[in-house]
Amino acid sequence: MVEFTKVKKCSTKEFELIKITDDVRQFAAQSKIKNGVVYVILSHTTAGIMVNESLPCLEKDIETTLEELVPLHKDYAHSHFLPSYGAIGGNAPGHLKSMLVGNHCVIPLIDGKLVMGMAQDVYLAEFDGVQQRTFFIEIIGE
């Protein structure tokens, strides 16, 4: 059996780590599927889905490290006019950070509950805000 939902979140900064664990937990709790896996999948290319520990110091370290790896100012090939959009590709850093973080995570579901380590939280990682973002939660199981 498969169950699926879409969730929208509006970021408030260019870089923002938005905790979405409760959204995932809530959908899993109301699901008829009791055992299986939960996928959290993002529908964008300049943000990411990641699992990490929800501590302000770590969130800061994640931001700093990604900024060092992918600086704001660099001669990115993507920074040019894109006729297909009618806009400038001003978000190369967002694309590259998204590539580093990935666009999904998978969590086991046992007896109707997410099986997660006590330090784990699920984040929507915004790298190109401020934007409205959509992610999918899909549960596959029985």
Binding site: C10, S11, T12, K13, E14, P83, S84, Y85, G86, A87, G129, V130, Q131, Q132
Partner: peptide, 21 residues
């Protein structure tokens, strides 16, 4: 007409947040 091929509508809430940021 305006040459915005791949863009799509967004809520006013997003405009407010973009302005604040």
């Amino acid at each position: 007409v305006m040459g915005y091929d791949l863009m799509s509508p967004f809520p006013l809430e997003l405009v407010e947040k973009q302005m604040a940021f």
